[in-house]
Design a protein around this nucleic acid. Sequence first.
RNA 1: GGUUCCUUAGCCAAGCUGGUAAGGCAAUAGACUGCAACUCUGUGAUCGCCGGUUCGAGUCCGGCAGGAACCUCCA
Length: 444
Amino acid sequence: MRLYNSRTLKVEEFKPLVEGEVSMYVCGPTVYNHIHIGNARPIIVFDTLRRVFEAEGYNVKYVSNYTDVDDKIIKKAHEEHRPEVEITQEYIQAYNDVRHKLNAHDLYKTPKVTETMDDIIDFIDELIESGHAYEVDGDVFFRVNSVKTYGEISHQNIEDLQVGARIDENEKKESPLDFALWKNTDMGIKWKTKWGEGRPGWHTECVVMIQKEFGKNMIDIHGGGTDLRFPHHENEVAQCRAIHDTSLANFWLHNGMINIDGIKMSKSLGNFTLAKDVLNIYGPQLVRWVMLSAHYRMELNFSDEVFETAKKELDKVMTSYKQANIKLGLMNEKLGVEFDTQLYREFLDQMNDDMNTPNAYAIIFETVKKLNQVLRVKEIDPNEVSKYAVTLEKMLEVLGIEYSRIPLTDDDKILFAKWNEAKAEKNYELADTYRNQLSERGLV
RNA sequence: GGUUCCUUAGCCAAGCUGGUAAGGCAAUAGACUGCAACUCUGUGAUCGCCGGUUCGAGUCCGGCAGGAACCUCCA
């Protein structure tokens, strides 16, 4: 597996820290609202990455969190006169519903901030004790200048950042770049600490959860949207550097944004479409197919036209697969276990090449073409049909595209026989009747 | 202004360590078919612009133009 590492700006050969095992963390949602379709991209991208690793025999430990403590959540709770937990539970469920529909596998662990609070407080304490953080009136800030490597993820140098940094109204900070680890607060849910009551800053949560859930301060892969590189991921690393002097993760992976008319879809811009709505309109399979049709690091423009084209592509693949099932059924044969190892290997090689899904799709179309070719000959060889159909299944499995084997009932077979008989007798009226019946069963 | 990245046929989109451009959609010409659908076969680009390195560059270097993300919460 070769992966583009945002930390080094290069494609590198992946070597796991522990033989045969992959530790992977992806920043999860802040659960104050339904996710939009842009938020669904990392779900699909990293689930697919996990499937590739698993296809290669790795044991993958994939962790993703729920940020269930946040200003927006508190604000919403306040406005709706509801407890925070009610809101977070609602949107965690909505998020998981989207994940399941998208056929994303279950995660190794899904920590919540509220359940990690003791560790977060301890960690902040440790940062203060070591001089990397300081407390002012109940707030705690991270002292960015105390970490020499600051900028290693976003590739910015501190001077440039300081020039560009907006003058913060918060004059408590020593430097405008310093970020909050703990916010003193009197509104909403809060925790008591020795420096005051409040809640943690966003950047601290992820580092702590990684360390806690994996039991170490260095993992294989940390993923997320490219918009999280700075400041979020930079600040995560800074904290880890401060205490452990590691880059937290060997590989930093970032997926590209989903655009609307060339502009990033975002909640703040308001140009977003909710994932659940897109799933209802196009169906989860098509969404997954579209998401993987472009390389994960590239921007992906979101439009009806993209979906229309993708639908034709996916239909082509699934139609071929369905035909294989039906033809085998009519021959009283079944799909076996043999597959074209060479085609499958080529497919996996593309997936291993920094998840080159466009090239992997090309292999799929090649497989589909071969399947169609063996389906079209006069004397169909069931072994050949099965071979390519099973090859296709294995590829779809890696991509997370669902398929289902179609068992033909005796009734179905009789109907096919009648249809053929009517055609042979040139009784097309009757033939169309049977065809319509088969069509209703989704067999034509 | 700084950082990172993108610009390939009508559209979408690959192209790693340089040797004359994957795949898909659309279009078009055939084949198959009772009709239709499906399918199969054939047909298209010199790679934003300029310059450099090289025997040779889409692929490396420099410059220019256009676009995006980040520098503020955001996948």
